[in-house]
Design a protein around this nucleic acid. Sequence first.
DNA 1: ATAGGGTTAG
Length: 719
Amino acid sequence: MPPFGISPLLSLLESCKTIKQGFQVHAQIILNGFQHHDFPISRLISFFALLGSEDGINCSQILFCQIECPNQFMYNTMIRGFSHSKFPEKALVFYSSMLRQVNRSPNNFTYPFLLNSCARLSTLKPGIQVHSHVIKFGFELDPFVGNALMHFYSVFRRLNDARIVFEGSPVRDLVSYNTMINGYGLVAQPGPALRLFRKMQDSGILPDEFTFVALLSAFSSLNDHRIGKEIHGFVYRNLYCVDSNVLLKTAILHMYAKSGLMDLAERVFSSMRSNKNTAAWSSMVSGYARCGQTEAARRMFDQMDQRDLICWTAMISGYSQSGQYSEALELFMQMEDLGIRPDECTLAAVLSACARLGALSLGQRLHSRYIEGELCSQNIIISTALIDMYSKCGKIDSALHMFHSIPKSLKTVSLFNSMISGLAQHGLGESALAVFGEMELIGLKPDGVTFVAVLSACSHSGLIEEGKELFRSMSDVYGIKPHKEHYGCMVDLLGRDGCLDEAYDLIRSMPFEANSVIWRALLGACKVHGNIKIGEVACQKLIKLEPDHGAHYILLSNMLANTNKWEQAGRVRKVMEDRGVQKPPGWSYIEFQGTIHRFLASDKSHLQDKGIESMLQDMAMRLKSAGYVPNTTQVVFDIDEEEKETVVSYHSEKLALAFGLVNSSTGETIRIMKNLRVCGDCHSAFKLLSEIYSREIIVRDAIRFHHFKNGSCSCKDFW
DNA sequence: ATAGGGTTAG
């Protein structure tokens, strides 16, 4: 082997592509006695650091650590390497050790990379500190540093700060404009993006394809296809390379797909011919899914040759957003089986589906396997989704624990909304108000969603005065106009207090027509307080608004029957039959050994296995000896008493409870989910059963949670 | 030094 000089070694290094080849060069460096020469070693460190792989950056770190007195280039290289690694925070570690070393002050190459690392962290603070260093060391006016600062601030949606840097920068080049336009796209402000674009043209800077990609993505957030089309035309007039520029085409396609213009999206898509990339496919998948066409989305998805994590996520979240939660979970498990690891976007979508389904054990598994102790445990969207999942699966304590473990500075309005509505569903009104107070204390401004949450918390817990006061302050103090949802909460609240006339007046004074949710709230209150007069009005309205909803007819006929207006009740039943309206099937489900078991009312298919039948008999017997009389008023009236009893004892929630009692051990909490409201008979029965079997039973119905324990329920019998 | 597709709460 001939001896090498330094420069042949360097040119050898230049031809290297893999870690192994890098090692060979390292061996040569040592063999030729250059291991203490800064120059070849720093090149080698740089080679490894910029390979872009985890192994590469580890190798460069090992080399770096062997050096007694690393030079500035080496530090910059490490910072640069970590800036696009999986551990951007390590760039900061190298930066501070650089500062600690005597005579090693940063230069103009240090900050762009360091700021890029900061842009990828989950918190804003380190970047702001770096900004103050930029000023301290006098790199404020460096155009590269300036652009990196704009990028950093816009990633954190701090467009005002980015703008200040932009305005203060002596040189505003193409990259500065692109970065700012892109930033406005991130915060969905296409207006300022467009103004900057004009300003750019005025100052004679020619846009490039990045400019248009940034503009297009800014306008994708707006569902205004007119402007999108205009940009499309503009792009064609200004860049004749459009047809060959895949990136640009993908951005155009995405703009159409996101605006729901799927036929235009299809046209761009097919014009891409053999250049269809995964991004284009993903845009199509999510575009179809977003407008509810999950089948079309799935066909696209199935046609793809190469599926990456993003398109899996697009399909999974497509199902989840369209309410097809089981499909979402099923697809997710298929993905896992292929060995694909979800990231935080996938997890957020899957957790949301778990929450809606009440799939606690899957949610818990996701938490412990992919989130706990991982980098994304700091991700606030994930935390929001987790809190929602734990709340909706009945584990309100876990949700609260998570919430309190999150540092104040990271908490967002959505996070608070998630926590408050969780507490509301569990009827924990005081806690909900306390969390709301904390929100104000740290200076977060509540929004419309927050008020839905706090108002429903008040109505679910009977905090009448607090609720009224909040409703007033909502517009007076916070300047938020109440929407239908807020009126719905107020009707619920007043109705609960027995103020049915007041509730009815509120509906009539609303600036818009009441929807079915609001009438249902009024009807619910009428049922509890036995107000037939207003109840009938509400029922009629509901039947008009939702003529296919069988429950309304049944409620109305039951209400009439209860006041002995048999004839009218019969007429209602007749109308229902004539229209062919079916009673909506009530079903309950319960999770057991990771799978969800579903029960339909009177469904005998589960009865043979696992001793459910005998458990049901045991339940009925013990209830009877405890002096319990079945409440059959909620059963359609024209069947005889004995049969009514049979019907109520086969309600889906009772079947699920029997299943739960058979398949769980003593002391274990039983969690049941129901698609409709829990029935009155089941509610009283469950209270007693919780005492008889010494079990805590948690039932999630369509609106809220019921925690049955020692003979009583957390809803205090109002729901 | 900048870039395209998927993310939470009602």
